[in-house]
Simulated assay, not measured.
Amino acid sequence: MMNRMLGVLTLFALLSPAWAQTPARTFAEQLGYPKDKKVVIMHIDDVGMSYESNLGTIKALTEGVATSFSIMMPCGWVPGFVHYMKQNPGLDAGLHLTLTSEWKDYRWGPLAGKPAVKSLVDAEGALWPSVKDVVKNGTPDDVEREIRAQIDRARTMGFEPTHLDSHMGTLFATPAFIERYVKVGMQEKIPVMFPGGHNTAIQVDEKMSPEMLDMTRKIGQQLWASGLPVLDDLHNASYGWKGPTKKNYSKKDLQRYKTELYIEGLKNLKPGLTMVIMHCTQPTEVFPHISDSGPTREGDLLAMIDPELRKYIEKEGIILTTWREALERRQKIK
């Protein structure tokens, strides 16, 4: 995702004042969290994508350490989760802004409607299947229309998004796309997922150059100046953790494998506000007909409900938080 941001960040750097170094204080400290503490948003992507995604998310929130999630508004199981939210108010529900429809036999179209966003629609009438397709065909105006349509549907269904992020990183793919993403977030006063601080984890994951790192911080300062909270870092490695190497592993093996990796990831985080991304699914016999990603998604769920992960978080004094709390803290700062 971050590698595609190079052109984006260069554009923003040309338009921005020259803030050069790592901020003296982390954004977490500026939000009032204790100095030198790891403050973590344990975040679930792809909610509403399937019945199984909803089941896994609910289980990770109610029985595990997950604290936040984002919903794919064009997908078929969104109403089921929104109805659950209305029975359980106060959940940290953002929008997983969706501009792709990547599965072969289960697909969705734009909420703005095909006539309004023709450049975002493929020959089947669905959103394009890959980020590359969206970059090749999509116009920035259509991207913004679809972003706003997804926000509008959330509000029509009765909830105000606590944050925005990007499915498959599509909105980080070109300078024009990210400009619209950030613009809408600032105009609507909705926090956007953007790592704008020390970026210790994400710079390793994405092999960011010093120039790219400096540019992310410039954008972070812009978002902060607009009145929104900003991430100090982003951990986005878990989708690549496919499972134990041995064949015929058990669910216990999968849980242990994923839990150990999450603990290692948390151990390596630096103090500040970090979003840790995961995909929690409780598979049924249907999910393999959607995607072959069931094992890694189930592994995320198993890790979130593992008592060993909770014990580690508590032992290390890691503070779990939400986008909702981060915005509330930011709004108190003049």
Rank of each mutant, 00 (worst) to 15 (best):
I178Y: 13
A93C: 15
P210W: 12
P110R: 04
P129G: 01
K246S: 08
L327D: 08
P79T: 11
A66M: 06
E52Q: 12
T284Q: 01
K86I: 12
P244C: 07
R180K: 15
W103D: 13
P283V: 10
A303T: 06
V192I: 15
R180T: 15
E124H: 14
S119N: 14
L228G: 00
P140E: 14
Q255H: 01
A60K: 08
T10F: 03
E211G: 07
L231I: 05
Y84M: 06
A20Y: 06
P79Y: 12
R4D: 13
F177K: 10
L234R: 01
P34E: 03
H167M: 06
F69Q: 06
A225H: 12
R297A: 00
D142K: 06
K86C: 12
P175H: 12
N248L: 10
N88G: 10
H96F: 11
L164D: 02
E124T: 13
I202L: 09
A66P: 04
G138A: 08
V47R: 02
S250M: 09
N88F: 00
E188P: 14
L97A: 01
Y181H: 14
M5E: 13
P110N: 11
R25N: 04
T22M: 11
Q21V: 09
G240Q: 05
G227T: 03
C280H: 05
K189N: 15
L266M: 10
I58K: 12
W77R: 11
K218S: 11
M215E: 13
Q222D: 02
L266R: 04
E325K: 11
V82N: 02
T100A: 13
L61N: 10
L11R: 09
G240V: 06
D36M: 08
R148K: 14
V40L: 04
E29K: 02
S250Q: 09
I44A: 11
P110S: 15
L234S: 02
K270L: 03
P271M: 04
G197D: 02
P175F: 04
G32E: 08
Q221L: 07
Q255K: 08
I147G: 05
K132T: 14
T162C: 09
G185M: 07
M186A: 12
G272K: 00
I219C: 05
H163Q: 13
F12E: 08
A116W: 11
E52F: 07
A28R: 02
G243V: 00
A237L: 02
Y312C: 10
V230N: 01
K334W: 01
N88P: 09
E206W: 09
K270F: 00
E160I: 12
L15S: 11
Y51F: 08
H279M: 04
L231G: 05
R180L: 14
K59A: 13
T216Y: 14
M73Y: 04
I319H: 06
S119G: 15
W103P: 00
P89E: 10
D105E: 15
G299C: 05
